[in-house]
């Protein structure tokens, strides 16, 4: 009887552990994680990206709808090919990266969740903060859970990976970035692309 109870307890505890949400850290030692951006402009579109990605996401493979977390992008890591454009972009006239060093998205709710194999798609509502202005946005995301793949990416480490991809657009005017100004030179709409992977070591 005691043995049966012990086995049942072990099975129960194992089940709880396996089903427990995992925390994924999005600070990427390989430097692949990035947030890309595109703005239309008369001579050529301004294409750039930011590599200073950090933050954590809690993900439960058995319940993707319970996913929650916050992704932060360091404003100072934004890069464009033209040095003068970059200086202007980070200056107090545009992003004011010194005063507002972080751009972030914090999730509140997952809706329209669809899971097929290791991939989950959903519409995430959360708070997007840029230049000190916070607004609620709903963003389509794709989550890919890669079980036991951390070791393939980072030798000598065991654990899982969570890949997040998201594409959405914002209006710079909504975030107090020269609202209604210079729209003949730089479009109001900014296209954003998030391509990040987080690690959950075991």
């Amino acid at each position: 009887m005691k043995t049966k109870l012990a086995i049942l307890t072990l099975v129960g505890v194992t089940g709880i552990v396996l089903a427990a949400p995992q925390t994924f850290d999005f600070k990427d030692p390989k430097g692949i994680n990035n947030a890309g951006f595109t703005l239309d402009a008369p001579l050529e579109a301004i294409n750039g990206n930011a590599s200073g990605v950090s933050g954590t996401v809690t993900f439960d493979p058995s319940n993707p709808g319970a996913t929650a977390g916050k992704i932060i992008v360091a404003a100072g890591s934004l890069m464009v090919p033209n040095p003068m454009q970059r200086t202007h972009m980070l200056s107090d006239k545009w992003l004011d990266a010194t005063k507002y060093p972080e751009i972030s998205f914090e999730s509140k709710e997952f809706k329209n969740i669809q899971t097929a194999g290791d991939t989950t798609t959903a519409d995430v509502t959360g708070t997007f903060t840029l230049k000190g202005v916070s607004k609620d946005l709903t963003v389509p995301v794709k989550l890919t859970y890669l079980k036991d793949k951390l070791g393939d990416r980072l030798p000598n480490q065991k654990g899982d990976l969570l890949v997040i991809r998201a594409s959405f657009s914002i209006k710079r005017g909504d975030f107090n970035i020269n609202p209604g100004q210079y729209e003949d030179k730089v479009a109001d709409t900014i296209e954003l692309n998030l391509s990040i992977a987080g690690a959950s070591p075991k």
Partner: peptide, 10 residues
């Protein structure tokens, strides 16, 4: 990135 399929920028 071969494992995640993510496209990074250097």
């Amino acid at each position: 990135d071969a494992v995640t399929g993510l496209e990074g920028i250097q």
